[in-house]
């Protein structure tokens, strides 16, 4: 989902940066507040960030014959809420843009928007929805993480289609073409991301059950203050 350096027209690059900035700013505020109130959650926040680090570094082969990578943002979005993931995803994308020439500074805003904003918000919403219809916990986590992964790539396809509409078919034709590259490649990888998120969540459930209850991830629905 990394749009390469310079591969968005100037207006789009600026637009997406402006759109992403408030989320990252507010996310930093949320993380600061949270760590101040619950310093013991700092380590778990590190785990959420580390998970994104690992998964976004793994370029996996897919059935379409090309390689792509998962995003790893679903876990943190379920644990800490979607806003906390915007700055975490931004750090990962910045690391890759500067050191690895993967993605770029001009496309950072657009990439943050798809991976660190749309993905986490989708994950949190799907998790909440799955919980409200009483799906099993593991299945809810799986759906949240894998659909968030897929939606990240669909967002990237839409961003590229907006910037490069097809000369004859316009946005729709272009969106179909970019989705063919991104979304189909991503399907098995989204399943992999879902499974890995469940694996990590299972370990956390086993050894950190109390923390998860305190964070209202597994606790019975309580009225939110």
């Amino acid at each position: 989902m990394h749009i390469m350096e310079g591969f968005l027209p100037v207006k789009h690059a600026i637009g997406w940066s402006i759109a992403a900035a408030p989320f990252v700013g507010y996310g930093l505020h949320v993380i600061n507040k949270r760590v101040k109130e619950n310093p013991e959650q700092r380590m778990l926040l590190g785990v959420a960030a580390a998970f994104t680090f690992v998964l976004s570094a793994l370029k996996l082969p897919s059935v379409t014959g090309s390689c792509s990578h998962p995003t790893g943002t679903g876990l943190g979005a379920v644990l800490f809420g979607p806003t906390a993931m915007a700055p975490i995803g931004a750090v990962v994308l910045l690391f890759q843009a500067i050191l690895l020439a993967h993605g770029g500074l001009t496309t950072l805003g657009a990439n943050i928007f798809s991976m660190a904003i749309v993905g986490p918000f989708a994950a949190a919403a799907i998790f909440r929805l799955a919980k409200s219809v009483k799906l099993a916990f593991g299945l809810s986590i799986f759906l949240a993480a894998s659909l968030a992964d897929l939606l990240t790539y669909i967002t990237t396809s839409a961003q590229l289609a907006l910037a490069f509409p097809d000369p004859t078919g316009g946005f729709t034709a272009s969106f179909v073409k970019f989705s063919a590259v991104f979304a189909f490649t991503q399907m098995p990888l989204a399943i992999i991301e879902g499974l890995l998120t469940v694996v990590v969540m299972n370990s956390l459930l086993r050894f950190n059950a109390r923390e998860l209850q305190e964070m209202k991830v597994t606790a019975p629905e309580t009225v939110r203050a």
């Binding site: 390469m4 310079g6 027209p9 100037v10 090309s66 390689c67 001009t106 970019f178 991503q186």
Partner: peptide, 21 residues
């Protein structure tokens, strides 16, 4: 990489586009 394929696709949809960074 799928990212590279997308880059090539940009080249085929908008042949005149030059990466500006």
């Amino acid at each position: 990489g799928a990212d590279d394929k997308a880059k090539d696709l940009v080249g085929s949809i908008a042949p005149g586009y030059k990466a500006w960074a």
